[in-house]
């Protein structure tokens, strides 16, 4: 099985805090891989290192066969890497539609000179808003939406990039149960069409039904990996959660 993402001995310290410690794992192409672990175990930091939000102290990130750990974030995005944020980040003063058309999946001077919201891009953005069920809010300011709706907008924004791999950081956090089901459904649907997912999530029923395999982090390193069942029955995992 081919790995679309390989993380090798990734390391990040914040002062005295060893947030990520020689962390290594792989994400198989076409999978919905779970990434779980107690609070503060380094999941978000791993996402930040993979996407270039912050530089790693050490280690490598191989994406689609190429090392990307030295590339600027937009270059990583152009290669097909996209993410959502644990606390949703939208351009609040822009409309929902503008937020969705904002991403660039490649760079060209000509594209920059085009109308901000126009043509096929606009159509595609409206389709995506339809897909997440928010097309009737397209012209509202993003900042005016409810938290759950904002999460869906960020999801549509990510899809606009047509990424190969999507990192979701607690997609179900602060979202009502109906919306969670809807999100899980969207992830499955996209996965069927070929997108790979790496999902950080605390909602265990969601992880167990959606993800396979599941990777477990504790204190910045991988301590276990396997099917949801295997991971649930792994004593080291129980220790990590209880010992906290």
């Amino acid at each position: 099985m081919r790995a679309i993402l390989r993380v090798e001995r990734l390391t990040k310290r914040f002062g005295g805090v060893h947030a990520v410690r020689e962390c290594s794992f792989e994400v198989r192409q076409g999978s919905i891989t779970g990434l779980i672990g107690p609070n503060g175990s380094g999941k978000t930091t791993v996402f930040n290192l993979i996407t270039g939000m912050i530089p790693a102290d050490d280690g490598r990130v191989i994406f689609a066969g190429q090392p990307i750990e030295r590339l600027p974030r937009w270059e990583r995005a152009h290669r097909g890497l996209a993410r959502t944020f644990q606390i949703t980040r939208l351009f609040r003063e822009m409309t929902v539609l503008e937020n969705v058309v904002a991403p660039l999946s490649r760079f060209s001077w000509r594209a920059l000179a085009q109308s901000a919201v126009s043509g096929p891009e606009r159509r595609r953005a409206m389709e995506l808003l339809d897909f997440v069920g928010l097309s009737q809010l397209a012209h509202r300011k993003a900042g005016e939406l409810s938290y759950g709706q904002q999460k869906l907008v960020e999801f549509a924004q990510v899809l606009m990039q047509e990424p190969k791999l999507i990192l979701l950081d607690e997609p179900a956090g602060g979202v009502n149960p109906a919306m969670i089901d809807r999100l899980a459904g969207l992830v499955r649907e996209l996965n069927r069409r070929g997108t790979t997912f790496l999902v950080v999530e605390h909602n265990m029923p969601m992880v167990m039904s959606l993800c396979d395999p599941v990777i477990v982090l504790a204190r910045g390193s991988k301590i276990a990996e396997g099917s949801p069942k295997e991971v649930q029955n792994n004593p080291a995992v129980l220790d990590a959660y209880l010992g906290d």
Binding site: P103, L104, F107, A116, V117
Partner: peptide, 17 residues
């Protein structure tokens, strides 16, 4: 629109390409 994205959240702007 990219410039306004930078004004609103520069890190996020980079992340979306």
């Amino acid at each position: 629109m990219g410039l306004i994205a930078i004004r609103e959240d520069e890190d996020k702007a980079g992340i979306i390409g």
